[in-house]
Simulated assay, not measured.
Amino acid sequence: MRLHDLGPMRAAVRSRLLELGLTDRRFGYPLEMVLRVAAAGWRIAEVDVDYLPRTGRSKVTGTVRGTLRAVADMRRVMAELG
């Protein structure tokens, strides 16, 4: 399967999610979750949803600091799990 986005909504059984041992508590969390879920052999599904355009500015890509923090966190996750 090919993911198109690391969107904000994820659904999983809590006990199974805790078993994955996720450690990142910042911007790398979505990437770590997807990588660990795939390694564990879980089924991953994307569901299209209707949404309104964003109002305001993203805390991640809307600032240089947020972008740099996200890149650093995701690089760390990739180094640990990739």
Rank of each mutant, 00 (worst) to 15 (best):
L18G: 07
G41N: 02
T67N: 04
L52D: 03
L17N: 01
L81P: 00
G41H: 02
S15F: 12
G7P: 06
R36N: 04
M9Q: 08
D50L: 15
T67C: 10
R25D: 04
V13D: 06
E46K: 01
L52E: 04
A12G: 02
M33N: 02
M33C: 12
A11R: 12
M74R: 14
V47P: 00
A12W: 03
R57W: 04
W42H: 01
M33Y: 06
L3A: 09
L3P: 00
G82K: 12
T23R: 09
R76F: 15
T61G: 08
R69N: 05
M33G: 02
V64I: 11
L20R: 08
L31K: 03
A38F: 14
A79G: 06
V34M: 11
R16F: 08
Y29W: 09
A39G: 07
A39Q: 09
G28D: 08
E19R: 14
V64W: 13
R76V: 14
V37I: 13
A11L: 14
L22A: 03
V49K: 03
E19S: 15
L81K: 05
M1Y: 04
M78P: 02
D48T: 02
G62N: 05
A79V: 11
T23L: 01
T61L: 11
A72W: 15
V37R: 01
L17A: 10
G21Y: 10
P30T: 13
P53N: 06
W42S: 01
M33T: 15
L6V: 13
T55G: 12
F27G: 01
V49R: 03
